[in-house]
């Protein structure tokens, strides 16, 4: 039993097509891939916004902003 469907290379290569594992599940791969992609955006945006909120709570007072403007 092989995940790729290839049990042996005692074959004529002109008769061989796809050689990746779990053939037939391509649509599931794509669904999982798309979910991960969209999930990445959600996690990234949450993390980025949290980072900005942290920065504002830590450095958002007027004097620090004025100091930053002077140093730019």
């Amino acid at each position: 039993m092989s995940t790729t469907g290839i049990e042996s290379w005692a074959v004529d290569l002109k008769d061989v097509g796809a050689i990746y594992p779990f053939q037939g599940a391509e649509v599931i791969f794509v669904i999982v891939g798309v979910v991960l992609w969209l999930g990445w955006h959600v996690l990234q945006m949450r993390a980025e916004n949290q980072d900005y909120e942290d920065q504002i709570s830590q450095f958002g007072d007027d004097s620090t902003i004025a100091e930053a403007l002077d140093g730019d």
């Binding site: 042996s8 290379w9 005692a10 074959v11 004529d12 290569l13 002109k14 008769d15 061989v16 050689i19």
Partner: peptide, 24 residues
């Protein structure tokens, strides 16, 4: 080609292989 691999591969289709001479 299969004759260059000298293994079990049949026919005369040439291919790229890994270092193990398995087709990819």
């Amino acid at each position: 080609g299969p004759e260059g691999i000298d293994g079990q591969i049949k026919g005369d289709t040439w291919t790229a292989t890994t270092i193990y001479l398995t087709p990819t």
